[in-house]
């Protein structure tokens, strides 16, 4: 699979040019509040990763099936037999706050 330069993958721009990486956008998607210093650090590190992608892209993969796995395994399926669910006390144990057996989250509206 050869991706053209500038092609958007995982929200990043694949490019040799470091300036194409919009670190603010990536941070916003990941819900991360970064200091200017952190932005510089992560932008540099991410660019190295993207640079590595470019190296991979340079390999001729013509005729090779893309795969996410190293094993030639398919149809790992389980019978539809329900098991005991987690007790409600355990479910809520990690929630910072709960009410009426539900997990309380800050008011979220779709326009967030």
């Amino acid at each position: 699979m050869v991706l053209p330069v500038g092609c958007k993958v995982f929200g990043l721009f694949l490019s040799m040019a470091e300036t194409d990486l919009d670190i603010d956008y990536v941070a916003r998607l990941a819900r991360l509040a970064l200091s200017d210093e952190e932005k510089q650090t992560y932008a540099r590190q991410l660019n190295q990763i993207i640079g590595h992608m470019d190296k991979l892209n340079a390999v001729d993969t013509e005729g090779v099936e893309p795969t996410a796995h190293a094993f030639p395994l398919v149809n790992v399926l389980d019978a539809d037999e329900p098991r005991e669910p987690l007790p409600i006390a355990d479910v809520l144990r990690n929630a910072p706050e709960s009410r009426d057996n539900q997990i309380v989250v800050p008011k979220v509206v779709e326009d967030a």
Binding site: V76, L77, D78, D80, R83, L86, I88, V91, L92, N101
Partner: peptide, 29 residues
């Protein structure tokens, strides 16, 4: 394999996979 059907008390049909706990792995139905 957490059970699923409609009309149960909230959060009574979950397990660590549903809750996205660290280290869990999905197995297809």
């Amino acid at each position: 394999r957490a059970p699923y059907s409609f009309g149960h008390e909230p959060n009574t049909l979950t397990d660590p996979v549903v809750l996205g706990m660290p280290g869990v792995l999905p197995v297809m139905n």
